[in-house]
Computed example of a mutant assay.
Amino acid sequence: MTGIPASAAGGASAAKGAASGTTAPGVVPASGAVPGAAGAVASGVSGGDSGAKSARGGKLTAAAVNQASVWNIANLLTMLRLLLVPGFVALMLADGGYDPAWRSFAWAAFAVAMITDLFDGHLARTYNLVTDFGKIADPIADKAIMGAALICLSALGDLPWWVTAVILGRELGITLLRFLVIRYGVIPASRGGKLKTLTQGVAVGMYVLALTGPLATLRFWVMAAAVVLTVATGLDYVRQAIVLRRQGIAERKAALEETEA
């Protein structure tokens, strides 16, 4: 009898069916046949592309969220306080700087700046809006409005220059210290610092209004308390900066030793 053996014919039919993506009638494909493998490869390639696209999309989404988080209500109030500084100076020095009406308008601008300082910190802590930008920009905004008020008051002869020098020297020094140790971490505003800011705000506000009589005596003692708090909290920030720097150096040294080991 002539012809091709059945097993060989079946093998040829199976091979042809595998090549064409079909299975010959009566031939059961072996486990792990080519169509399944090809499908798996195609699925893997497609899944890999989808995974890569998903990862890139996730990174872009995360970056967008991080970028948008800076523009929260707390940071916007901080920016508003910065914008109030030139307006306050213009009102403070209007008409020679001694007109009661213009001084009242200047006090209103100063009061708005101080109130926004209280609100932005409260909102940031309550609604978890604390950002590194806010930690740095908030004290800068405080110092800008406070420095403008102190310099104007001393230039007009309402406040001794040594008071302005002590307060501004401390504020600028602590700001510089924050930037010097920022590689090790951010020094957040303390409760003592907030109390200092509030006391300074009340004292400077009383001086901006150009009060006389018993209120003028009261504002002197309020300013004295503000100067004491300014110096005390400044020393505390220096202590925090030293501790933060030591911790940062120790952590880097430990990480380096672990890497070498």
Rank of each mutant, 00 (worst) to 15 (best):
W161Q: 00
W161P: 00
W161C: 00
W162S: 05
W162N: 01
V163R: 01
T164D: 06
A165M: 07
V166N: 02
V166S: 01
V166M: 07
L168D: 09
G169D: 08
G169K: 00
R170S: 09
R170K: 12
E171L: 05
L172E: 07
L172Q: 11
L172A: 12
L172T: 06
G173T: 12
I174P: 00
T175A: 12
T175E: 01
L176V: 14
L177H: 01
L177D: 00
L177P: 00
L177C: 02
L177N: 02
L177Q: 06
R178H: 06
R178T: 03
R178M: 04
F179E: 00
I182G: 00
I182Y: 14
I182D: 12
R183G: 12
R183Q: 14
Y184M: 01
G185M: 09
G185L: 12
V186R: 10
V186M: 12
I187T: 09
I187K: 05
P188T: 08
P188I: 11
P188G: 02
P188W: 11
A189G: 13
A189E: 01
S190V: 11
S190C: 11
R191F: 14
R191Y: 13
G193I: 13
G193S: 09
K194Y: 11
K194Q: 05
K194S: 10
L195N: 14
L195C: 13
K196D: 06
K196P: 03
T197Q: 10
T197D: 08
L198K: 08
L198T: 15
Q200A: 11
G201Q: 06
V202G: 10
A203R: 06
A203W: 14
A203N: 04
V204D: 06
V204W: 04
V204Y: 05
V204N: 03
M206P: 05
Y207P: 04
V208E: 03
V208L: 13
A210M: 14
A210E: 14
L211G: 03
G213N: 10
P214N: 13
L215F: 14
L215I: 14
L215N: 01
L215Y: 11
L215V: 11
A216S: 15
T217Y: 12
T217V: 15
L218Q: 03
L218P: 05
L218G: 13
R219A: 15
W221M: 04
V222C: 14
A224Q: 09
A224I: 06
A224G: 13
A226R: 02
A226W: 07
V227R: 01
V227W: 00
V228Y: 07
V228T: 14
L229V: 06
L229Q: 04
T230W: 00
A232S: 13
A232F: 15
T233L: 03
T233I: 02
T233G: 08
T233F: 00
G234K: 03
G234H: 07
G234A: 12
L235D: 03
Y237F: 02
Y237Q: 05
Y237T: 08
Y237G: 09
Y237D: 03
V238H: 07
V238E: 00
V238Q: 07
R239W: 13
R239P: 06
R239N: 11
Q240L: 13
A241R: 05
A241W: 03
A241I: 07
I242M: 04
V243G: 00
R245W: 01
R246S: 12
R246A: 15
G248Q: 03
I249T: 10
I249K: 12
I249W: 00
